[in-house]
Structure formats: structure tokens, C-alpha cells
Amino acid sequence: MEITVQKLTEHVLELIRLAATSLPPDVEKKLRESVQREAEGSAAQGALQTILQNVALSREKSTPICQDTGTPIFYVYHPEGVSTRALKKRICAAVAWATELNYLRPNAVDSLTGENSGNNIGGEHYPYIHFEEVDSDDLMVDLMLKGGGCENVGAQYKLPDGRIGAARDLEGVRRAALDAVHEAQGRGCAPGVLGIAVGGDRGSSFVASKEVLFRKLDEYNPDADLAEMEARITAEANQMGVGPMGFGGNTTVLDAKMTAMHRLPASYFVTVSYMCWAFRRRRMVVNGDEATYE
């Protein structure tokens, strides 16, 4: 298949613009539903109404939903024979361009000197790009913009964990997830979505906890046990009363998404990635010259 490389920079720019300025419909729908769950005139309801106003305004004006436009996380699914180096070049060019156009805030800071690169390009690992060859003629790119506030409240547990009475089973996973929600309070910009990975090593567990966030909120987990646990964790997290922005209230998380991986006999990690309400993720499919977005 032919991917017109010249056009690709423009396509990726549009993907970034869309992700940064237009909240996905499944997330907005959940936020709308939660307004009715909060007490009339409460600070919690006020926060949700402000959030929804902001979502509409950002879309209308094509300005960032949140000023922290986050770490750009790209998952690129490409046909056989496509140069990933060429793709990376185009993606980085689009990221720098999007920064110039103020769809992205300059966010890449040298950890040693404190210097901001100014264009969101920083070394080999910023932006984060994962490539995977697939049996398809299309190029598919998923993008998530994950802000620092919610990234900071992510947590990894090593079971057993006596502090929370968590053993190496699904009940232990439930305890870890609920503890993470309590620890986060409103600081991850509640109401958020939990990405929960069970197993793996420390690194793969964190990666998987973010990958699972690419699933749509109305998508059911194919594993019945995990599907049930996702619903239970969501319901119980909402019983804690942290509420939107941590103001107190009935909506603390919008959803939970889980995945499980093989692990070493010695290790049992539970990793919780928290995605803020400003859940910015979009998908692009390119075929030939044409790109479509969802």
C-alpha cells in the first residue's frame, strides 16, 4: 500500500488538533450522565457543569480542553514494509507544528538542565511512539494526550500488600484499585477513568495500564470476570464520595478498564493509571491520501 508521506504530517496534525480540542463522545456522554447524579446546586454539580461548558467551548474555538496538553502517546499500527523511521519523522514534525499552532503546550523539559525544548520534541522518548506491524492495508494511529496531574496520581502495588489487606487474587486487585482512588482524591482531576493492569513486570504493567485506556468507555471487557470487576470497582469508587475535583459527591470515577498479563512466580503487580476527565484520545485511519478520524 502507498502512504503519501508528505500528506501524513498534515493528517497527524489534524489528529493532534482533534485530540487536544474535542473530547471523545463516549467520555462526554458519561460526564453528561453524571451531572444528574449530583445534588442540585452542589459544588460537585457546578464543577461538572463548568467542565461541560469548557468541553463545548474548546470544540467550538478549537483551543485546548486543558492547558496541560500532556504527554503525546502514539500507537501506530502500520502495514508491512512501511518505514517506521519515516513515520516517526512525520509524527515529530506534526507535534512541533501543533505546538507552534498552540494546540499543544511546549511540555518537554530536560530533566537535568530544566530547559524546555519549546516544541515538544525531546530526545528519543518524547513524544512516546509505539509501532506495531499489522495485517492491513491501512495505517492506523491512536493518540492519547495524558496530562501530568493525573499521571502523578498513578500507582503500582506489589501484592501481597498487608497495609491494604491485599492478597494475590482479584480481591487484592480490587483493594489496590480502590486504595489508589482514595490516595488520588481530586488531584487527578476527578472524575477520572482507571486503567488497571494485573501482572507483567513493573515496566510492562505500567504500559499495559495505559494501553487499556484506548478502549472505549462503552466497550465491554471480553473477560467476564474482569468485566464484572470493572463494574464493581467503578461503583465502589463512587461510594467513596471524593466527587468531581475532590469537592465531595457521587461521581469520583467514570469507568475502570482492566487487563491481565502473565507474570513471574515471584511477582504480582497491580498498576493503576489514572486518566483525568479530560480524557483526550482520538484515532486516525489513513488509506492512500485519505485520512478518516474517529
Binding site: 463548568t50 469548557n54 481530586g186 483525568c276
Partner: peptide, 13 residues
């Protein structure tokens, strides 16, 4: 004073 996190376009106004 708490501002609504993420409400960036609105607050910028």
C-alpha cells in the same frame, strides 16, 4: 481558591 481543573478554554476567557 479552587478553580475547575481542566476547564482551560473557559478560564482563559
Amino acid at each position: 481558591l479552587h478553580a475547575v481543573g481542566g476547564a482551560a478554554s473557559l478560564i482563559a476567557q
